[in-house]
Simulated scan of single mutants.
Amino acid sequence: MSSFYVIDSDSVLIRPTTVADIPEIVKLQEESFADLAKIGNIWHPHELKSHLEIFPGGQLVAELDKKIVGSATSLIVQLNPTYADHTWESITGNGMLTTHFPAGDTLYGADISTHPRVRHRGIGHKLYQGRKDIAMGLNLKRMIGGGRLYNYCEHSEKLSPLEYAHNVLDCKLHDLVLSFDLINGFDFIKILPDYLEDARSLNYASFIEWVNPHYKQDP
């Protein structure tokens, strides 16, 4: 019998990532992103170790019954201009977070995952809230990210990436990633081409933004 079951999200603990969590996070990635795992586009132990060395305060896991069922990876950046095009590799330092800029004004969501067997139970929402708490605690202006257009491959013959995104915004289509981002208070800004090698999104992602309502600009 599976050790995963229907849960109450209140029983899930969101906490900072530790070095001891790394093997479980790698396994979580392999099971959460089976399509990307085939081409190596998931976290590897040396990358996760680098994240903890560079920005330990930006790394979170979701724990249920002492098992890791979700994780979130973040760094601080400063884009110029505000909505500059970028790729996942360029913004994350090829996954090592060497681009982390402590003096920046923006929290960047490099990755978020929940185990497939416990999705739609509020765990992803709690991880996003954990990120928002980090952004507010550090008085960052906003949080942004690039969400791959997960279901775009099913509509690419009839719709451009932007048309597809607007259909999701208008609730005419559902996208596993963008719809989830919108529910969690993000705004769609634009399409990012060549964001990440990914057969499902055809490498397209949505630039998403959440503005910190408690941000206080330095006098």
Results as ranks from 00 to 15, higher is better:
36 L>S: 07
23 P>L: 05
38 K>R: 14
31 E>L: 14
28 L>G: 02
11 S>F: 14
14 I>T: 07
19 V>C: 12
39 I>V: 09
18 T>V: 04
36 L>K: 09
35 D>Q: 11
20 A>E: 14
25 I>N: 03
32 S>I: 02
9 S>K: 15
20 A>S: 14
17 T>P: 02
23 P>C: 05
10 D>H: 15
39 I>M: 05
29 Q>Y: 06
17 T>H: 06
7 I>M: 10
21 D>P: 07
18 T>E: 06
23 P>N: 07
13 L>D: 10
8 D>Y: 13
8 D>N: 12
12 V>E: 06
20 A>Y: 12
25 I>F: 00
28 L>V: 01
26 V>K: 01
23 P>S: 02
16 P>L: 11
15 R>C: 03
9 S>R: 08
40 G>A: 07
23 P>M: 06
25 I>C: 04
21 D>V: 09
7 I>Q: 03
37 A>E: 06
9 S>N: 15
35 D>T: 15
19 V>Q: 08
21 D>I: 04
20 A>T: 13
37 A>M: 08
22 I>Q: 00
26 V>S: 00
24 E>L: 08
26 V>N: 04
20 A>C: 08
15 R>I: 04
27 K>P: 01
26 V>A: 00
25 I>A: 07
30 E>S: 10
35 D>K: 09
32 S>T: 03
39 I>D: 06
9 S>A: 14
13 L>Q: 09
16 P>S: 05
38 K>A: 15
19 V>P: 06
37 A>Q: 09
24 E>S: 14
29 Q>D: 08
13 L>W: 02
15 R>T: 01
37 A>S: 11
16 P>Q: 02
26 V>D: 01
14 I>N: 01
24 E>N: 14
38 K>P: 06
15 R>P: 03
35 D>M: 10
8 D>E: 14
19 V>R: 13
30 E>C: 11
26 V>M: 00
38 K>M: 10
8 D>R: 14
20 A>Q: 12
39 I>S: 02
34 A>G: 07
19 V>D: 08
19 V>L: 14
9 S>W: 07
28 L>T: 03
17 T>Q: 08
36 L>I: 11
39 I>H: 05
26 V>Q: 04
23 P>K: 03
22 I>G: 03
17 T>N: 11
36 L>H: 11
28 L>S: 01
30 E>Y: 02
32 S>K: 08
17 T>A: 12
10 D>V: 11
21 D>G: 02
34 A>L: 11
10 D>R: 11
9 S>E: 15
23 P>H: 12
14 I>A: 00
10 D>S: 15
36 L>A: 14
32 S>H: 11
38 K>Y: 06
33 F>C: 04
20 A>V: 06
26 V>Y: 01
8 D>H: 15
18 T>Q: 15
21 D>M: 04
33 F>Q: 01
17 T>E: 10
35 D>Y: 11
7 I>C: 04
27 K>A: 15
30 E>F: 00
13 L>I: 13
18 T>C: 05
11 S>Q: 15
24 E>H: 10
18 T>R: 15
7 I>G: 14
8 D>I: 04
39 I>N: 08
26 V>W: 00
16 P>N: 06
29 Q>S: 02
13 L>N: 12
19 V>M: 12
11 S>G: 12
23 P>A: 03
15 R>G: 04
37 A>N: 10
35 D>N: 09
39 I>C: 02
11 S>L: 13
22 I>W: 03
30 E>L: 13
7 I>P: 08
16 P>F: 05
13 L>E: 10
12 V>Y: 04
25 I>P: 00
8 D>P: 12
30 E>W: 01
